[in-house]
């Protein structure tokens, strides 16, 4: 209408103030997912790594000594007729007197023959 025509110029501009975001809605006690949390979910790590790395190594006893384990060692040895038990008995000479021993030449310090050595490693 005409009246509205003239109003244009002098009527002041009305504006509605900029929007303000409402306080974010977060359910009580909700722990949001952070960027680095999600990153952990995307990094592949070998499935063969040891998970329990941080188990503590056995603590050192003070001074770092290792103590001795006491080992039971069965009852006292029964009295063995210790043939080697001698009390002052003197040495008795051989009955048959000393004779020189003839051994096969093979045992004269040359050891094994070539073929014997080959047999040794041959099989």
């Amino acid at each position: 209408s005409k009246r509205e025509e003239e109003d244009f110029e002098d009527r002041e501009i009305e504006y509605c103030p900029p929007k303000h975001d409402p306080l974010p809605y977060v359910p009580d006690g909700h722990v949001p997912l952070l960027k680095e949390d999600i990153e952990k979910l995307t990094t592949f790590r070998s499935p063969y790594l040891i998970e329990d790395e941080c188990s503590k190594s056995s603590e050192d006893t003070e001074g770092g000594f290792l103590d001795l384990e006491d080992i039971e060692s069965g009852q006292e040895d029964e009295e063995m007729s210790d043939a080697s038990e001698y009390t002052g008995k003197t040495h008795v000479d051989a009955i048959s007197g000393r004779t020189t021993l003839e051994l096969e030449p093979r045992y004269a310090g040359e050891g094994l023959s070539a073929s014997e050595l080959n047999d040794l490693v041959g099989d």
Binding site: L33, D37, K40, L41, T43, R45, P47, L49
Partner: peptide, 13 residues
């Protein structure tokens, strides 16, 4: 749980 672990094994991931 995710927050507590710094790096996850594949199984856990």
């Amino acid at each position: 749980l995710l927050r507590k672990l710094d790096n996850l094994s594949e199984k856990t991931r």
